[in-house]
Structure formats: C-alpha cells, structure tokens
Simulated scan of single mutants.
Amino acid sequence: MSNTPIELKGSSFTLSVVHLHDANPEIIRQALEDKIAQAPAFLKNAPVVLNVSQLNGNANWAQLHHIIAQSGLRVVGISGCKDERLKSDIARAGLPLLSEGKEKAPRTTPADPSDTPPPAAPVATPVTKSRLIDTPIRSGQRIYAPHCDLIVTSHVSAGAELIADGNIHIYGHMRGRALAGASGDKDAQIFCTHLAAELVSIGGEYWLSDQIPAEFNDKAARLKLVDGVLTVEPLY
C-alpha cells in the first residue's frame, strides 16, 4: 500500500463532443431536448466536451452553460475556443479549456548533408493485439479496448456497452451499444452475427435502434462509414 493518500495517473476515456453552431439559448435548448429524447438512457448524466469553435465573445456563456446543465449533460471541458473574451467567460465559470491536436514543429534549416549521421536501423512496430472477451457481457457492463479491436465471442445484453478505438466483432446476439472508432477512426467497422443493438456508432456517427434498417434485425451485419455516412450491409 502506498504511503501517499492520492495517486495521479494518466488514463483515457471516451467522451461525446457537442458542437455548438448557434449562440441562441432557446435554439440550443430545443436542439438538446430533441437529441436527448432520442436516447435518454444513453445521454442522461453523460459527460461531454463542448466544442465552441463556431461561437464568439458575443455568446452569453453563463446562459448557455446553464441550459446545457439543465438538459442533464455534464460538461467536463471546452474545446475549440479561439475568442479571448469567450475564453475569459469560460475561465470564470471554472471550466477547463482543452487543446486539440498537436502544434506543428517550427521549420528548421536543413543541415549540411556531410553532418548528417547514418540512419539508424529500422525498429519494428509493435503488433497491437485485439482484446478478446469470451464471456457474456451483462447489462450495465462497459468494455473498452484502447488502441485496438474488440472481439466478443458471446452475447451482449441490453444496457451493456462495447467501446473500441478500432473495429468491434460480436459473435453472438448484440442487444447493447457498440461504439467503434471511438478515438475518431472513420475506417473502423462493426461486425455482428445477430444485430439487435440499442445504439451503434462509428467515428462519432451513430444510429439508435429505430434507425437501423428493419431487414437487418437479428441478422448478420457489417456496419461502416461510406463518405462519412453510417451504412449497413449483410455480413455474409
């Protein structure tokens, strides 16, 4: 047991990002109500990041934040903020400003070729293994496969959630939620032998159960993005 009362460790979590394209509080309120009504169990008390890249300092941030909190979403951070006035309002609200991506390294003048050391021997890239689950996934369970595919060889109950940065394979009845490409990979896919999911998502694009074409209910299916649009086709 550690002598220190706390530990600070790095970790990763899958969060939804809400992009605000309008600063009108009533428009935002109605849009949130409509969206949450589609999946109340999935979005209730859900932690989210707000992207405010389309807003400026004229936005009434205090009012917007209040409306979003009233909707039941839990704001854990703000991304995409470039307006200094808006940054100040957000900082006063006590919310963290998150940066996205990496800054480009400054350009440097090429060195004299005669000073360039010989190239190092190539280093093999480590193989990323898939996460394999052989047991049924019960309601309330959440399985996450960071930086790899997720393979489930049993059934997934309603209320369970599968999340993978890569592909998701389910060799059983899929009645829960499946979120592939959770880190933004638009090439990820979902493969399922018995599709009856509450929600499917690839790279942030999602369908609720009533949006999945009825002809694929409890059938073997393959889901992927085509030109940014979620599509489904027979697996066999």
Rank of each mutant, 00 (worst) to 15 (best):
D115I: 09
R131L: 15
K129W: 05
T108G: 03
A120G: 04
G140K: 14
P110V: 14
C148Q: 15
T108Y: 01
G166P: 04
E161G: 04
E161Q: 14
R142P: 05
Y144M: 09
P118G: 07
G159F: 11
K129R: 10
P118R: 08
I133K: 09
A160R: 00
C148H: 09
S157V: 06
R131K: 15
A160H: 01
K102L: 04
V127P: 01
D134W: 03
S154E: 06
G140L: 11
E161W: 05
T125C: 02
S114R: 10
D165R: 07
S139R: 05
T116N: 13
H155N: 13
L132Y: 13
A160W: 03
T135D: 07
A111M: 15
Q141N: 04
K104C: 01
G166A: 11
I151W: 03
A145F: 00
S157D: 14
P146C: 04
L150P: 06
P110G: 13
K104Y: 01
S157P: 04
R138E: 15
D112N: 14
Y144L: 10
E161V: 12
C148E: 13
R131T: 11
E161S: 09
T128R: 12
L132N: 09
V152F: 05
L132K: 10
D134V: 07
P122K: 05
I163H: 01
S157E: 15
A105P: 00
K102E: 05
E103D: 10
T116F: 12
A160G: 09
S114V: 08
A160I: 02
L132D: 09
Y144H: 08
R107V: 03
S154F: 06
A145N: 00
I143F: 04
V123K: 10
P118S: 13
S114I: 08
K102W: 02
E103F: 02
D115N: 12
L132W: 13
V127A: 06
T135M: 13
I137A: 08
A145R: 00
R142E: 15
I137H: 02
R107W: 09
E103N: 00
R138Q: 15
P106A: 03
P146I: 02
P106I: 01
D134I: 08
V156R: 04
P119G: 02
T128N: 10
R142D: 12
K102Q: 06
T109M: 10
G159E: 14
